[in-house]
Nucleic acid binder design. Structure first.
Lengths: 119, 119
DNA sequence: CATCTATATTGACAGATGTTGATGCCTGTG
DNA sequence: CACAGGCATCAACATCTGTCAATATAGATG
């Protein structure tokens, strides 16, 4: 059971609405999407996300991520948890190491919501 | 002097970097971009932004925006200020009324950074 | 089993954030 | 000039957030 099950997460709600420039969000929609933005709206988490998502496999080991920051290990662990609970990354324990994988689909729909693909 | 001057705002830093899925952000880049996401990462502000950006003229009067929420007028004023200071909206006082206009270019580059147009 | 290593959880704390009522500042109008 | 209405600012408050040291957990290894 090392592969995490594909369950419904907050990130799945990113595709709930048309881009900001197209149609106003209902309060309910805004409350669904805001947590995703909040998860990214921290310098450390934003960089964590970029470090994970820019890998060829879209995944990175915590051991590598820890070294990329001048922060304590619990702090990084906390930020990864926030990203995971928002549904922006999947968690996969392999042996002693834990890998986080970017949910690129969630990122894509979130990006489409914020900045219209302009086409 | 009703038209707000076009000055350098935080939003201008959104185009600072390649998409998250392409290249990792430096800490400095992350610290530049995160405030933009933070400005949008509140349900009220996200909906405010959508209410403004989805208008044909990309602008809306505060008087209309106030009515769209079940919140006090100072609260809406506060959120609009946050969006403005992030550089996501421009402020334009016309007579007694104040209009906020979406910086669609800023939204576009922010969206492109989060979710790569994948092409 | 004892131990080491990688990661998560807990508890605590300072600082940031969202909200409101009261108040101030403009601007148009009588 | 006095007043009314639209919006911003202020002061105060409860709540949330980022951070770390200490500790727990879980897997590998001797």
């Amino acid at each position: 059971m090392s592969k995490s099950l594909v369950l419904l997460t907050p990130a799945d709600t990113a595709a709930c609405c048309s881009p900001l420039t197209v149609e106003p969000l209902t309060m309910q929609q805004a409350e669904q999407v805001a947590p995703l933005l909040k998860a990214l709206a921290d310098p450390v988490r934003l960089r964590l996300m970029s470090l994970i998502a820019s890998r060829e496999s879209s995944e990175a080991c915590v051991c590598d991520l820890n070294d990329a920051f001048d922060l304590s290990q619990p702090t990084i662990s906390h930020h990864l948890k926030v990203l995971h609970e928002a549904g922006l990354v999947d968690r996969d324990k392999r042996g002693v190491w834990v890998y986080y994988r970017a949910r690129t689909a969630a990122l894509a729909s979130l990006g489409a919501l914020v900045g219209n693909p302009a086409r």
